[in-house]
Computed example of a mutant assay.
Amino acid sequence: MQKEEIIETLQKFGLTEYESKAYVTLSLLGQAKASEISKQANVPQSKIYVTLENLMEKQLVEVSQERPKLFKAITPSFVIKNLLEAKEEEFKSLKQKAFLVSRLLRPIEVDEEIVEGIWVQKVEKYMEILDRLVQMVKKAKKYVYDVTKSLPYSSSYREALLDCKEKGVSLHVMAMSLEDMEKMKWYVKNGIKVKLLEARNHPRILAIDGKEVAIRIDNGKPVF
Results as ranks from 00 to 15, higher is better:
residue 2 Q to L: 13
residue 18 Y to P: 00
residue 22 A to K: 10
residue 26 L to S: 06
residue 27 S to V: 08
residue 27 S to Q: 13
residue 29 L to N: 03
residue 31 Q to K: 14
residue 36 E to L: 15
residue 38 S to Q: 09
residue 39 K to Y: 15
residue 39 K to F: 10
residue 42 N to A: 09
residue 44 P to Y: 05
residue 44 P to K: 11
residue 45 Q to P: 01
residue 46 S to C: 13
residue 50 V to M: 11
residue 52 L to K: 02
residue 53 E to I: 05
residue 53 E to T: 15
residue 55 L to T: 11
residue 56 M to G: 10
residue 56 M to Y: 06
residue 57 E to D: 15
residue 57 E to V: 10
residue 58 K to Q: 14
residue 61 V to A: 13
residue 62 E to F: 13
residue 62 E to T: 10
residue 62 E to K: 05
residue 63 V to W: 08
residue 67 R to C: 13
residue 68 P to M: 03
residue 70 L to H: 09
residue 70 L to R: 07
residue 72 K to I: 07
residue 73 A to V: 04
residue 75 T to E: 10
residue 76 P to I: 01
residue 77 S to W: 02
residue 79 V to I: 05
residue 81 K to E: 14
residue 82 N to Y: 04
residue 82 N to I: 09
residue 86 A to H: 12
residue 87 K to R: 15
residue 87 K to W: 08
residue 91 F to D: 15
residue 91 F to Y: 13
residue 92 K to W: 09
residue 93 S to C: 08
residue 93 S to N: 14
residue 101 V to L: 13
residue 102 S to N: 08
residue 103 R to M: 15
residue 103 R to T: 11
residue 104 L to R: 06
residue 105 L to A: 11
residue 107 P to Q: 10
residue 109 E to T: 02
residue 116 E to L: 00
residue 117 G to E: 05
residue 120 V to A: 10
residue 121 Q to G: 07
residue 122 K to G: 07
residue 126 Y to D: 13
residue 127 M to L: 12
residue 128 E to D: 15
residue 134 V to F: 00
residue 139 K to W: 03
residue 140 A to W: 01
residue 141 K to G: 03
residue 145 Y to S: 03
residue 147 V to R: 10
residue 148 T to K: 10
residue 150 S to H: 14
residue 151 L to Y: 04
residue 153 Y to E: 09
residue 155 S to Y: 00
residue 157 Y to A: 05
residue 159 E to R: 07
residue 161 L to R: 00
residue 162 L to T: 00
residue 171 L to R: 01
residue 173 V to A: 01
residue 176 M to P: 15
residue 177 S to M: 12
residue 178 L to W: 11
residue 184 M to D: 09
residue 190 N to P: 01
residue 190 N to Q: 04
residue 191 G to I: 03
residue 192 I to M: 00
residue 195 K to A: 09
residue 198 E to H: 06
residue 199 A to S: 10
residue 199 A to Y: 12
residue 201 N to G: 07
residue 203 P to Q: 07
residue 205 I to R: 08
residue 208 I to W: 00
residue 210 G to F: 08
residue 210 G to V: 06
residue 210 G to S: 09
residue 211 K to L: 14
residue 211 K to A: 14
residue 214 A to E: 12
residue 218 D to C: 13
residue 224 F to D: 02
residue 224 F to T: 05
